[in-house]
Amino acid sequence: MSMDFILAQTVVNGLMVGMIYVLMAIGFTMVFGIMRIVNFAHGEFYMIGAFLFAILYGSNGMPFAVSVLLAIGATALLGLLMERVVFRRFRGNELNGMIASVGVALILQNSALLLWGSSARTVPPVVSGVLSVGGIVFPWSRLVVIIGAIVAVVSLNLLIGHTRIGRAMRAVAQDSEIAQVQGIRVDVIFPAAFVLGVSLAAFAGVLMAPVLSVSPFIGLAPTLKAFVIVVIGGLGSVPGAVVGGLLIGLIESFAGTFVSASLSEILQFLVVIGVVLLRPQGLLGRKEREA
């Protein structure tokens, strides 16, 4: 194998994993920004999205688009239920909310274990073949993940930046009391933001299911990665999540390819420690104002 080939593969892998992390981190940071809840169950929605897609598309052979929509829709409904039953009680209560989210994570993971068993499932690839550019080949199965994630991030950005509900979400995140006086119902915005975050996680799971295998345990790693990325990028910052996600994805891919997977973990956490020491608000985060 030529160096070019390895390099190209490493970049594509890094971007793919990085974009998945971006999707995870954006949902994670949105839920924190709006509800002030650090949701350690975030990755379980990724796992459930991946599982539902594996069952619908892989095992039952349903059409691709239908499987995607059903997997995301069902996960979103589960998210809505969790918001109703658990998370809304912990709005703004950061410590207790975080502990509750660990509980939710365990419940979801073990329910998946009961329901679907512990063995890993594979999902048939959605696309096959390669894209050849100047003699370097890129597998479509991975490019599709990158493209899908970019489309999701861009759509989300349009939603948050340019729609009525997007403005309302930002207003609630910045000053929920004053947002109410503008006629914004926070009891609608909180679940909407939560469900949006969960849907992004489910979509990330759907995208990754055909590339990796699916089991009840795959949610933990993306949760931790989302947490790490949000610390690097700045809590509550969407651009920070994009930068942090791609950074972690590329570190993981390059260190994993050229040295070893354990070095990649070490490097990632060195970056985190460095950011926390030198720029505690994160690369693109803003300093918390003193209350």
Binding site: R164, R167, R170, A171, Q174, I178, A179, Q182, G183, R286
Partner: peptide, 15 residues
């Protein structure tokens, strides 16, 4: 809303 543009602040007012 400090991290929103002036226009977005006004548009939120028209919610």
């Amino acid at each position: 809303f400090p991290q929103m543009s002036v226009l977005d602040n006004l548009l939120v007012g028209a919610y």
